[in-house]
Simulated assay, not measured.
Amino acid sequence: MHNHIYPPSFEIGREDRNRLNRHPSGVLWLTGLSGSGKSTLAAVLEKELYRREIRSFILDGDALRKGINRDLDFSPSGRDENIRRMGEIAKLLMQAGVVTIVAAISPYREHRRYVRKLFEGDRFYEIYVKCGIHTCMQRDPKGMYAKAHQGIIPDFTGVGMSYEEPLEPNLIVDTDGRSVDSCREQLLQFLKEMEMFGDA
């Protein structure tokens, strides 16, 4: 399939862009239940990276569902394609020299394994934003759990559909009972250990 397509080769590559940016590019894939704090952490992390003059961009699951993935439903095949597209977009942004922060529930281990394979041996980090379902329901910032319990949103992750916890994430950030600042500092320390700061 597609054996007649030959991607062009350009003179400027990812390593060149990393040298220009003075930092490596990579992907931080934040997975967790709705209300666990993925988007909040992505936002504060991006702000800190900007302060450090590190080029970054957030791929938010809800934002993509409103745009490039608006043609997809929440059926198994729709969820498969949603994650596939997010992974491919993240890969393009990484090639562009950007630290890409993905904030998406991505509830299935199979999907996350697929994405990880796209970046095999590269700077891809699966980060489990862990939070108990009861805390997520209490937060319910978008009112999704309430609608799910009312039957307005069928097959909502955590209510009608299960969430499969990561078995071997690169990092676990437990947001249950912790401040945003504390979680942000944990993320920054992790990035420092992964040598994501400084000259590439």
Rank of each mutant, 00 (worst) to 15 (best):
Leu64Thr: 04
Pro166Ser: 15
Glu164Lys: 00
Ile152Leu: 14
Phe156Leu: 07
Asp122Glu: 15
Arg85Cys: 06
Lys147Val: 05
Asp62Trp: 00
Lys147Gln: 15
Asp155Pro: 00
Gly151His: 12
Asp122Phe: 09
Lys91Asp: 04
Gln186Thr: 08
Gly78Thr: 03
Arg116Asn: 11
Glu81Ser: 05
Phe57Glu: 14
Glu185Ile: 07
Met144Cys: 14
Ala104Met: 07
Asn69Val: 01
Gln138Thr: 04
Arg123Glu: 01
Glu168Ile: 03
Asn170Pro: 08
Leu72Trp: 04
Thr157Cys: 02
Val159His: 05
Asn82Glu: 09
Gln186Ser: 06
Phe119Tyr: 10
Glu110His: 03
Arg70Pro: 04
Ala90Gln: 06
Val180Ile: 15
Glu120Arg: 14
Asp62Gly: 08
Gly160Thr: 01
Ile83Asn: 00
Ala96Asp: 13
Tyr114Phe: 10
Gly78Met: 04
Ile152Glu: 15
Lys142Phe: 04
Arg123Lys: 11
Pro107Thr: 05
Leu118Trp: 12
Asp62Lys: 08
Tyr145Leu: 10
Gly67Met: 07
Tyr145Trp: 13
Asp71Cys: 06
Asn69Arg: 07
Pro76Trp: 08
Gln186His: 05
Met86Asp: 01
Ala63Asn: 15
Cys136Tyr: 00
Arg109Val: 07
Gly151Asp: 12
Arg85Ala: 03
Gly158Asp: 12
Thr100Glu: 13
Lys66Cys: 03
Glu110Thr: 04
Thr157Leu: 02
Ala63Ser: 14
Val99Glu: 08
Gly87Lys: 03
Arg184His: 13
Gly160Glu: 07
Tyr125Phe: 15
Val115Asp: 03
Glu88Ser: 07
Val99Arg: 06
Ser182Arg: 13
Ala104Cys: 14
Glu81Trp: 11
Ile58Lys: 09
Asp140Asn: 10
Cys131Trp: 05
Lys142Ser: 11
Ile58Ser: 02
Leu118Gln: 12
Leu188Cys: 09
Gly67Val: 01
Gln138Tyr: 05
Ile105Trp: 11
Pro166Asp: 14
Arg112Leu: 00
Ile153Pro: 00
Tyr163Ser: 06
Leu72Asn: 01
Ser162Ile: 11
Arg84Asn: 02
Asp176Trp: 12
Thr175Phe: 05
Pro169Met: 09
Ser179Pro: 01
Leu188Val: 09
His149Asn: 06
Ser106Leu: 03
Ser106Asp: 08
Arg123Gln: 03
Lys147Ser: 10
Arg109Ser: 15
Glu88Pro: 00
Leu188Ser: 05
Thr100Cys: 15
Phe74Pro: 00
Asn170His: 15
Thr135Asn: 03
Tyr145Ala: 08
Lys130Ile: 00
Met137Ile: 10
Glu185Lys: 14
Ala103Lys: 02
Arg84Ala: 02
Val129Asp: 10
Asp62Pro: 04
Gly87Arg: 01
Arg70His: 13
Ser77Gln: 06
Arg65Pro: 00
Ser106Val: 06
Ile133Phe: 13
Phe156Met: 04
Gly132Gln: 09
Ser179Tyr: 11
Ala96Cys: 09
Val159Thr: 12
Gly121Ala: 08
Ala63Asp: 14
